[in-house]
């Protein structure tokens, strides 16, 4: 009896972790791609907020979660375009520009979102994947989720393949490794970077819209509550590999859930200390891979954060 209970508990914990980790996964994958092209965008939180309000407004207007997520992705991509034009073409400092985007996104989303506060979004029933979701034990946990959860996983697979196996992915990595050589090889460095940044914004947008339309679902200013910043920590944690971003996202997403479970069964661990562990692990990982020239070369875009002006 007890074992069945534990199994059921584990299964629900997995289900909750999957849905909690999805926004982090989506945003982390987007940031992975733009960092692979050598650009750091600290505006993730702002992009997610803008997309959250855009997605919520669309969901309210159309009742369609597909349109809402697409709209969120578009809003994120547009915000990233603004960042990209500044940081890539006008060569403004990437960190300052990203932070400016964070501020602008926070303010603008709160401003346009005033009318959407405490509006109710009719919830769509979860259908799940037929047959698989009826499997015993982990069937419902794994297969009765919103489709965006699987979209995120599919995206991870596609990005992994794209970066490691495709010519275009190779070009993107080359731009992040050494923009000078990429330029010498005739690659349009800045256009590649802009495309990567916009893709990153679109993914962050998906994540933001997922939060406001599917996860909580509601719009309130500041509702992303720091998840954009956590997503920024995911890429170094994952040493810029899509597969490890998956692990990281579920780990970061699951750590609060785990703490809540421990708490409700009476195990007292400081949530702050528990939440600190993934960040400490990230620093450790960074230190370890950076010690070894081969590892670092294999794992980290060499020109991360470095601006590039052709012809200099």
């Amino acid at each position: 009896m007890n074992e069945i209970n534990n199994l059921a508990l584990l299964s629900t914990l997995i289900a909750a972790t999957l849905s909690a980790g999805t926004p982090l996964l989506l945003a982390g994958l987007g940031l992975l791609v733009n960092e692979r092209a050598g650009v750091v965008n600290l505006g993730a939180e702002g992009m997610m907020l803008l997309a959250a309000v855009a997605g919520f407004a669309l969901a309210l207007a159309t009742g369609s979660d597909v349109l809402a997520l697409a709209g969120g992705a578009l809003a994120g991509a547009l915000a990233a375009l603004l960042f990209g034009v500044f940081a890539i073409y006008l060569n403004t400092n990437q960190y300052a520009t990203g932070l400016a985007l964070s501020l602008l996104g926070g303010g603008l989303s709160a401003f346009v979102g005033i009318d959407y506060v405490s509006r109710n979004l009719p919830r769509l029933p979860l259908t799940g994947i037929p047959w698989l979701s009826d499997l015993p034990w982990f069937g419902p946990a794994l297969f009765r989720q919103h489709w965006a959860v699987y979209l995120a996983l599919l995206l991870a697979l596609l990005i992994g393949v794209f970066l490691q196996r495709s010519r275009a992915g190779l070009a993107l990595r080359a731009v992040g490794e050494s923009p000078e050589s990429a330029h010498a090889l005739g690659l349009p460095v800045r256009r590649v970077r802009l495309a990567a940044v916009c893709f990153g914004g679109a993914c962050c947008g998906l994540a933001g819209a997922y939060l406001s339309v599917i996860y909580t679902p509601m719009w309130v200013e500041g509702m992303v509550a720091g998840r954009g910043w956590i997503a920024l920590a995911l890429t170094p944690f994952a040493t810029w590999r899509a597969s490890r971003v998956v692990i990281g996202a579920y780990l970061f997403g699951g750590v609060t859930l785990l703490q809540f479970h421990l708490q409700s069964i009476g195990v007292e661990i400081s949530s702050a200390l528990l939440s600190m562990l993934p960040y400490l692990a990230t620093i450790l990982v960074l230190a370890l891979i950076s010690r070894n020239p081969v590892w670092i070369q294999r794992n980290m875009p060499a020109s991360l954060g470095r601006p590039f002006t052709p012809g200099q």
């Binding site: 909750a16 909580t216 509550a225």
Partner: peptide, 11 residues
């Protein structure tokens, strides 16, 4: 909202 939801789900 996110944490509140996660707390509710855990309970």
């Amino acid at each position: 909202p996110g944490k509140e939801r996660e707390g509710a789900v855990a309970l």
